[in-house]
Simulated scan of single mutants.
Amino acid sequence: MSSTPLFRFGVVADPQYADLEPNLTLNRYPANSLVKLREAIEEFNRHELAFVVTLGDIIDREWKGFDAILPVYETLRHPKHFLLGNHDFAVAPEHLQAVHQRVGMPSAYYDFGHAGYRFIALDGNEISVFAPPEGDPRRDEAKARMKALETSGASNGQRWNAAIGSTQYAWLAAKLRAAKTAGEKVIVMNHYPIFPDDSHNALDSDCMLALLAEHDHVVAYLNGHNHAGNFGVVGGTYFVNFKGMVDTEDSNAFAIVSVHEDRLDVVGFGRETSRRLALS
């Protein structure tokens, strides 16, 4: 068993910062996330990391939230990658189409390679009742998907969930095929979980799960959104739902993932669970 990893990367989920009083019902303390994020970045800066990824819900609401939290990320000495979550779109309508530019993302969804791995960062918010502008047909599509899920008895037909569009789905499928041809292992990242079954799962979790099941080189799917965290395995793919940083008054939640030839070691800090995930 190798002791030296190929590389390591940091993971943050759902800092969900806002200058707000705590939500005691949900045990969320959005104002405390600045201190927690600084603490996480201090830890990340002690390690040699390839990058740090934030799996969405950078803010809880309001455009000005970005002005407060993004400067904290500037203290990180490693490259940073962002995904967006539902709360990142709880901004004034005129800002909806500029969120990914505001946080410095190259585009709403993208991919990058590192040391024989292909990382695919999805925009899970495309089909939703919050990210597209008012009057956009994607809002109606989201409502139809939610209704169909509710009719079928599924628990995830919720307005805080979302799905990817057909163009992005085709892009994802093409990226998976290209990675296979290139001999790369794949880690997919999204804000929304797709497995195990949960009320927080993406509106398109079934077809996403089916697509990933066709590809034995997809070793992991990483997400946030369900702040309690979750974990599952389908075939050779691990589904790791990281816990929400915003939850609890003072206990933190973040992780460092060490990528080895034969395994992924997830080292959890604070409330986050540590896991050793063997690779076939």
Rank of each mutant, 00 (worst) to 15 (best):
D204N: 06
A162F: 08
P133S: 08
D140A: 14
K36R: 04
R139E: 04
C207D: 13
H81F: 00
L176M: 07
L264E: 01
Y109A: 07
F269Y: 15
E126A: 07
H260F: 14
L37Q: 03
K185G: 01
A92L: 06
K80C: 09
E21G: 10
I194A: 09
A98S: 01
F254C: 05
A154W: 05
H78D: 09
M146T: 07
R46P: 06
D140G: 11
D14L: 14
F231T: 13
L55K: 08
L20A: 04
V233P: 02
D247C: 05
M208K: 04
H227M: 00
L20D: 08
D136C: 07
R46S: 07
G113N: 01
D60N: 10
I59H: 03
D247M: 06
F130G: 00
P71A: 09
P132N: 01
F130Y: 11
K143E: 14
D88L: 10
G224V: 00
S107F: 03
T75H: 11
F119E: 04
S280F: 14
Y73R: 06
A178H: 10
V240Q: 07
A182M: 14
D111P: 01
V257T: 05
N32G: 13
T181R: 15
T248R: 02
V72H: 11
A18D: 03
M105H: 08
R102Y: 03
K36I: 03
A163D: 03
I164G: 00
A213S: 15
L37H: 06
E214R: 15
L211H: 01
R145L: 10
K143I: 14
P196A: 08
D206E: 15
A210L: 15
E150H: 13
L277F: 10
F112A: 01
Y17D: 00
L20H: 00
L37T: 05
N226C: 03
D111H: 12
V35G: 06
A50D: 00
E126Q: 15
Y109I: 10
G224A: 06
P133V: 12
